[in-house]
Write a protein that binds this DNA or RNA. Structure first.
Lengths: 119, 119
DNA sequence: CCCTGGTTACAAAAAGGTGCGTAATTTACG
DNA sequence: CGTAAATTACGCACCTTTTTGTAACCAGGG
């Protein structure tokens, strides 16, 4: 999904939120300040490279604040920006919508009902 | 983004909403019933393969209703389901959030401000 | 050599595009 | 009248592009 096709804000948000990681990272960051290695522990299946790339993307989008500290083992902290914090409930609302949609569709034959609300 | 990593509803919604097309298709379908060829006209850059695949995905997710009519040239209609309709305002809220986030970040050097609200 | 956070180069995998085939019926043409 | 073409919504096979993973390397203090 390289570039936009419609110059509309919705397509733009989806461009940054699309993919497996953005929402997960935002969720874990909503718990509070995290370091690179914390986020690696939080989602063990993300590759090193993906984590840096996704964090940069979120930083560029103004969702995540990156703070670098000088020091012995170099230390970098990540937080949600105020805009990022405002985004959290919107993402939660999508999760709630999905839970409801999965449960009240009658002929929903798939495993949609054993989903666990963990974000 | 093949399979899930966290069994949480948010990751699941993002799996179906991720990408360039889902939000656009939902937007166009929120205008009312559309046929395959209508949707092709609405977004001329989507390939027919992508369009069928994305519509199937949205159908499987319970967002889109597909109705096939017998006839001379076969006719198929697509609508939003009730769940799909409930989703629309949530997506709009993301667009609004993005517009605000783009405008009130001071050091935002990119073109975020000339975005046009069209969804 | 270790640590943390990161970059780079290369390879694998996934996403996406192109074009052809198909159904059933109408219309167009010689 | 017989035949060919057009229409609509795809499925399939093949190929290119984009994304993601792997692994190796870098910095600089301990």
């Amino acid at each position: 999904m390289k570039d936009l096709v419609s110059r509309c804000p919705i397509e733009e948000v989806m461009q940054v939120l699309s993919g497996r990681w953005p929402s997960l990272l935002i969720y874990y960051l909503s718990e509070g300040t995290k370091r690179f290695s914390d986020l690696q522990r939080d989602n063990p299946t993300i590759s090193h490279k993906m984590l840096t790339m996704e964090l940069r993307k979120l930083e560029d989008a103004g969702i995540v604040q990156r703070t670098e500290f000088d020091g012995y083992p170099r230390r970098v902290e990540y937080d949600l920006t105020p805009a990022g914090l405002r985004l959290v409930p919107l993402i939660d609302a999508l999760g709630d919508w999905w839970e409801r949609a999965s449960s009240d569709v009658p002929g929903d034959q798939d495993v949609a009902n054993d989903h666990i609300k963990m974000i």
